[in-house]
Structure formats: structure tokens, C-alpha cells
Design a protein around this nucleic acid. Structure first.
Length: 479
RNA sequence: GGCGCCGUACCCAAGUGGCUAAGGGAGCAGUCUGCAAAACUGCGAUGCGGCGGUUCGAACCCGCCCGGCGCCUCCA
């Protein structure tokens, strides 16, 4: 039985979908005004894995992730850089897709943009106005928080607490300081759409209500995002949506924890800010390896816990993956002998599959699930020592791929064993050149000229190439 | 001021009432090897920030304290 920590109830709730066999989930994506950082990567990855896991246990998933493509931050950026807001949106939308692609994060089934849903947004605002939950102020429209008594139920806040801590100057015209904009009138030169209240653009919160309802219905299963969205964004979404429909909005609210640097939240002002792009540019490994290492690293912390990003952590993730891919490569080799342990393999795989499911059923406990995969690696290594048939080796490989696919791991065919130009850049040698050196070294070894053999090995090691001699006299190498 | 989170070995990190406190990385010792590498085997917290309490029994529940962090403003 899958249980999910639900921010709304503050506890782990058993998951029961609204419609049996299907899951409808909506996740707040990004505002496309800048490069994505590791925090965005974590959030996107967490929900990618959740979506995959639902698929793995047999649900038909509809996954919606939005892009906020009209917003103050976009407009400000555009005016600072003296270009159109559309150009800003286009640039960072592409950057997002590039980064997510590198991380192996699949696009959502539907990726709506706020600007594509202006009519839905206007209709929803009109509905709120009609029901008395919103009011007009010149060309603006505000949501009236006082008309929704349950306001604060997601973030567990009381109205008076919010006022006490208010750190912003309050717009004097608002009826209540907590009221928030549904529609903002535009100044000349700003993006604008016609509306019953004059030209303007949607406020931030309303787009998610409109888009999720449009694509998933007025009530759906899961709504997710980063913890910082709990208040005010998701609180406001609930207020708007429930007030408009008189129905429950999302049933399970899932929020991921922050990425920190040295125990502090990343922020531009602290200067401890890492973009996904920088990590890939700085990495000495090929792109797909960096992507998988980052993925592995992020998944070895539970999604709700804070995660401290570090180069060391990333490196350790890479080393752990080296161990897995080293095993996969040995499993690919043809068996010399048929061992007696093939039945044990099936048992071990079954046990792992069960434990893996148990871990993931427990609020998507990816660190525990990864630990099961590590356990399987260790078991298969032992069985391989004792001897596994070619067929059993293939069975083991397929099991890793199947379980790994939930997390987007173990899907690469090659791991540092490829002939790609990027690798040549690192080692300075082509495969053919390496093969030739290895051959020369083995001839030296046969002549017992170990000094020469070791010299070649050292030379290769300096270029990042590791040698493994096998018992049968052949040599395996890897970059 | 309000709300909330975290503190488990050298590092990362599961476990949240009951078998000997998962797993990985690093380290040390050994097997294998010409030597390595990889793999395998063994070693490693009598203790889970501290002090009390509840309980037959607590890292897990309760209280207080210490340390760190987040939200309350745009933010994944």
C-alpha cells in the first residue's frame, strides 16, 4: 500500500486515487526568467520519479507541469536587458529543456503555459467575482481572503499570525493586507491581454488553478512543488479553487525539501548558487555520466529532507555508479562456465523487487530503494564469482534496468567505454591508440618484462585510463 | 513574534516502540594477482545532540535544553 506524506493533513496518508487505476498530478514548474539551479533539478527529479513509480505499480498517469511565462520577474529582466519579454521566455524555456534533458527527466504529459490559458484564467476570475470572493480595484482584481474561512489550512497559519509577521508594505487600497492579485492591469509596454477589467495580465497564483482544472478537472489527486510554495502560492491556489468550485481541489499535497550549500539555502545574495548548466560545464566527466551521477546523488536523500550539495557528494555518487556499471559490463561478457547458482539469483532478485517496492511505497523513500539496489549489486557480484550462465547474467542485467528505470538510473549502454569525441578530449587517446598500448603491454607481460608493462600502465593511468587484467590473460580497460 | 524542519560512525544516509542500529563512500587487514585494478572476505557507532520522563522495553513517544536551518516577501 502506497502512503504519501500529505502537507494538507501533516501525515502519511494511504494513497487512494479519485478514479481507480489512474493518477492525475499537477506540479508547479518554473518561471522562465533565469537559468535553473540544483534546487529546480531536485524538484523536477522528485516528481519525475514519483510519476515513474506510479507507472511502475500500474497506474495510468496524467502528469501536468506548467511554465509560468508571464510574470514581473520576466518583465523586469526583459527591460533590464532591453529586449522583449518573449525573447526572455524563449531563451530560458530552451535552457530548461536542455537541463532537464541532461538529467534524463522526461517532459510531463502536458506542459501548459500561462499565456496559453488566458481565457480560462479570465473565466475563473469572473466566477470568483460573481460569487463575491473577489473585488475590483481600478483595473486590478483581488481575491478577498476573508471570504474563505479555511484560509491557512495548508500552511497551518492563522490570519493574525500572518499579519504580525508581515514584512512588506501593504497596498493601502486592499481591503485586507492578505488579499492577493488575480489580475493586474498593465502599464504601457508591458504584456497585456484584453479582459472585462481592461488590458492586463494574470496574477501568479491564478494560472495554476486555471490550468490544473482545465487539464485535470476541478478535483484531482496530487499537487506538488517545492516547500517554499506552500505559502503563499499553494495556500492561495486552494483558496481560489475551492471558493470557485465549492469542491476539494487537490487531495494530496506533496512538497520537496531544499537544496542547501553548507547547511544554508542557496541564494544569489549569499553567492552560493549553482546552476545546472555550471555543474555540467565544470564536470570532468562526459555529459550523460554527470547527469546520472547528479541524479543518483539527489535521490540518495529523501525528497522531504534538506539536501546539502557538494562536489564530494557528487563524486561519491559517481563512484557508486562505477560499481554498478562495472558489474553490468561483467554481466555482458559471455559465461565461460555454467554455474550452479542460477536459482539463487531469481530468489535474490525477487527479494530485492519486493523490498524496493516496500521502500517506494513508504512515501517514495528513494534512499532506502537505492540501498536495495546496492544490496542486489553486492549479491549479484557474489553469485557472479561463483559462476552464472549467460542467460542468468542477462536476467540480472534486465532486473537492474527495470528497477533502475523508475529512478532513471542504469539506462546507459556505455559507461566510460565509448569512443565519443568528448572522451578523447579527456584522455587524449583514441580507442585504437589505447588498444595498441594495451597489446604492447600484454606482449611485455608475456616476456616477463614487467618494468615495461608497468610503465605503459602508468602512462595510461596518467591519461585517466584504468587497466584490469583478467585471469584468462586478456585485459579490460576503461576511461 | 508566529508556523515548521533537522541533529544517527571519518563523510553521505536509512531506520520512528521490541531480533545483533540498513546501505554506500573513505580507511585498515586478508584472498586473488608478477605487481596492480576489479571482485570477494573480515574489522569499524554498547550507542543514535544533551538531560529528564512515559513504558516490561525508546534512536524512535512526551517535556525541557543545546546546536543548525527554513517559511511568514519573489523563490523549487
Amino acid at each position: 500500500m502506497l502512503t504519501i506524506h500529505n502537507t494538507l493533513t501533516g501525515q502519511k496518508d494511504p494513497f487512494e486515487p479519485l478514479v481507480p487505476g489512474t493518477v492525475r498530478m499537477y506540479v508547479c514548474g518554473v518561471t522562465v526568467y533565469d537559468e535553473c539551479h540544483i534546487g529546480h533539478a531536485r524538484s523536477a527529479l522528485v516528481f519525475d520519479v514519483i510519476r515513474n513509480y506510479f507507472g511502475y505499480i500500474g497506474y495510468a498517469v496524467t502528469f501536468v507541469k506548467n511554465f509560468t511565462d508571464v510574470d514581473d520577474k520576466i518583465i523586469n529582466r526583459a527591460s533590464q536587458e532591453g529586449r522583449s519579454w518573449l525573447a526572455v521566455v524563449d531563451q530560458y524555456l530552451r535552457a530548461y529543456e536542455r537541463d532537464m534533458g541532461r538529467l534524463g527527466i522526461r517532459p510531463a504529459d502536458i506542459e501548459p503555459k500561462a499565456t496559453e490559458h488566458i481565457p480560462d484564467i479570465i473565466k475563473l476570475i469572473e466566477r470568483l467575482l460573481t460569487k463575491g470572493h473577489a473585488y475590483r480595484l481600478n483595473g486590478d482584481v483581488y481575491y478577498q481572503v476573508a471570504t474563505y474561512p479555511a484560509y491557512g489550512r495548508l500552511s497551518k497559519r492563522k490570519a493574525e499570525d500572518l499579519l504580525a509577521g508581515a514584512r512588506v508594505e501593504v497596498d493601502e487600497r486592499k481591503r485586507n493586507p492578505m488579499d492577493f492579485a488575480l489580475w493586474k492591469s498593465s502599464k504601457p509596454g508591458e504584456p497585456a491581454w484584453d479582459s472585462p477589467w481592461g488590458p492586463g495580465r494574470p496574477g501568479w497564483h491564478i494560472e495554476c488553478s486555471a490550468m490544473s482544472m482545465h487539464h485535470l478537472g476541478e478535483t484531482f489527486d496530487i499537487h506538488g512543488g517545492g516547500m517554499d510554495l506552500i505559502f503563499p502560492h499553494h495556500e492561495n491556489e486552494i483558496a481560489q479553487s475551492c471558493a470557485a468550485t465549492d469542491k476539494e481541489f487537490a487531495r494530496y499535497w506533496v512538497h520537496n525539501g531544499f537544496v542547501q550549500i553548507n547547511q544554508e539555502k542557496m541564494s544569489k545574495s549569499l553567492g552560493n548558487f549553482f546552476t545546472i548548466r555550471e555543474i555540467f560545464e565544470k564536470s570532468e566527466w562526459p555529459e550523460e555520466i554527470t547527469g546520472e551521477a547528479l541524479r543518483y546523488f539527489l535521490l540518495t536523500t529523501h525528497y522531504r529532507s534538506p539536501l546539502d550539495f557538494s562536489d564530494q557528494g557528487l563524486r561519491e555518487a559517481k563512484y557508486a555508479l562505477d560499481g554498478f556499471y562495472g558489474l553490468f559490463n561483467r554481466l555482458k561478457e559471455t559465461a565461460k562456465t555454467e554455474g550452479p547458482v542460477n536459482e539463487k539469483l531469481t530468489t535474490v532478485i525477487e527479494r530485492t523487487r519486493f523490498a524496493f517496492g516496500q521502500a517506494m511505497d513508504d512515501d517514495f523513500n528513494t534512499p532506502a530503494a537505492v540501498a536495495e539496489l546496492q544490496g542486489l549489486r553486492s549479491e549479484v557480484n557474489k553469485l557472479l564469482e561463483a559462476g552464472l550462465s549467460t542467460k542468468a547474467r542477462e536476467q540480472a542485467r534486465q532486473s537492474f534496468r527495470k528497477l533502475g528505470s523508475v529512478m532513471g538510473l542504469f539506462q546507459l549502454e556505455k559507461w566510460r567505454f565509448n569512443v565519443e569525441l568528448s572522451d578523447i578530449g579527456v584522455s587524449g587517446l583514441t580507442d585504437v591508440e589505447i588498444e595498441s598500448k594495451v597489446k604492447e603491454r600484454n606482449e611485455a607481460r608475456q616476456r616477463k618484462n614487467f618494468a615495461r608493462a608497468d610503465a605503459i600502465r602508468t602512462e595510461l593511468a596518467e591519461k585517466g585510463i584504468t587497466i584490469e587484467d583478467r585471469p584468462d590473460g586478456t585485459t579490460r580497460w576503461k576511461r
